[in-house]
């Protein structure tokens, strides 16, 4: 796997796969009215029994998938930049691809039953996130200067593996919500909607930290760079308040804010594409600027989290005690 040509191919495949998957995730969600034939059919007796939990679960799958797609593309680019020096650097590509496939499967699955393979994959993703964070911490710490700004800016990004961890957690939550067709949806004995809202809020804060760090590296030279460090923390606060607040609230503003964050996440790709074009040689010099310019696949992780927030809010609406 050391030959440059193969590394190029792997990185390109990773980016392409994540793009395609993201597109199909989003298109499958927009085709809500008439489910396409290839969707896994749900047994009739359950279809009507608890559609809200399945709906919420599928939305969580979609959120997890969006995050996984972002991780797949981002780790492809960044680990290609790192020349896949360590074989372990292929892991997030494999795991996020698997998580993505699982999430596609989950998004299409109408059955109110947890799926063992999905569960296992999501747990694997979460574990990968944890181990990856450890790797990245180790990588930064061992560089000359240790945990200095230089190494935090340009070493392995400490926060990045958290995205696959979050993807795994949301997926895991999705399975718990999906199987809760008779009881109240709970996760580790906590009300599921609130738990997911809290996890998502924390994820938003973490991702804000990552964006804040990298935008600080870019000296906030463009005022729009302030958006991902101001809008998401407000979203996080709204989600936290939803998680901690009493039942029966509609959270209209919070849901509106989540949609705003989703839009911001996808618009971020456009902003980053503009950023790439502002580097020397612009897109003609893509082989350098994709790597040195702002990371194109990073912003959609905000969208993934915001989608999870919407799912949590939807669940709380359907199950006031969830």
């Amino acid at each position: 796997m050391n030959r440059p040509a193969e590394r190029d191919l792997i990185a390109m495949a990773g980016i392409a796969a994540s793009g395609l998957a993201l597109a199909s995730l989003l298109s499958s969600s927009s085709a809500r009215v008439r489910p396409p034939r290839w969707r896994l059919a749900a047994p009739g007796r359950n279809r009507s029994s608890n559609p809200e939990t399945v709906k919420a679960a599928r939305r969580l799958n979609r959120a997890a998938g969006t995050l996984a797609a972002s991780v797949l593309a981002d780790s492809s680019v960044e680990h290609y930049r790192g020349s896949f020096k360590n074989k372990a650097m292929y892991t997030p590509l494999l795991v996020s691809a698997l998580t993505l496939a699982t999430s596609l499967h989950g998004t299409a699955d109408m059955r109110p039953l947890a799926h063992k393979a999905r569960d296992a994959t999501y747990l694997l993703a979460a574990a990968t996130g944890l181990v990856g964070s450890g790797f990245h911490l180790y990588n930064v710490g061992k560089r000359v200067g240790g945990f200095s700004w230089q190494n935090v800016f340009y070493g392995a990004p400490i926060g990045a593996p958290m995205a696959i961890l979050l993807s795994g957690l949301l997926g895991f939550c999705s399975e718990r919500v999906r199987e809760a067709h008779r009881t109240r949806p709970r996760i580790f004995r906590l009300p599921a909607g609130r738990a997911i809202a809290a996890v998502t809020g924390a994820g938003l804060l973490g991702t804000t930290g990552e964006a804040g760090l990298l935008h600080f590296r870019g000296a906030y030279h463009n005022p729009f760079m302030l958006l991902p460090v101001t809008l998401p923390p407000i979203g996080a606060a709204l989600l936290m308040s939803a998680a901690g607040g009493g039942p029966g609230r509609t959270h209209r503003f919070t849901r509106w804010w989540m949609r705003l964050l989703t839009g911001m996440g996808f618009a971020g790709v456009g902003f980053h594409a503009y950023g790439v074009s502002r580097n020397m040689g612009g897109w003609r010099n893509w082989s350098q600027n994709i790597l040195n310019g702002p990371p194109l696949p990073a912003p959609p992780s905000f969208a993934g989290l915001a989608l999870a927030g919407l799912a949590a809010l939807g669940l709380m609406k359907a199950h006031p005690d969830a």
Binding site: G218, A219, H221, G275, R278, N279, M280, N285, Q288, N292
Partner: peptide, 25 residues
């Protein structure tokens, strides 16, 4: 420059600094 500034592009690390910067970084 380590980030864009107006019409000037950030450094591309080409290493020709003391022979003149062709990117306006």
């Amino acid at each position: 420059l380590s980030a864009p500034r107006g019409l000037a592009r950030p450094c591309v690390y080409r290493g020709f600094c003391v022979t003149g910067c062709s990117t306006n970084a």
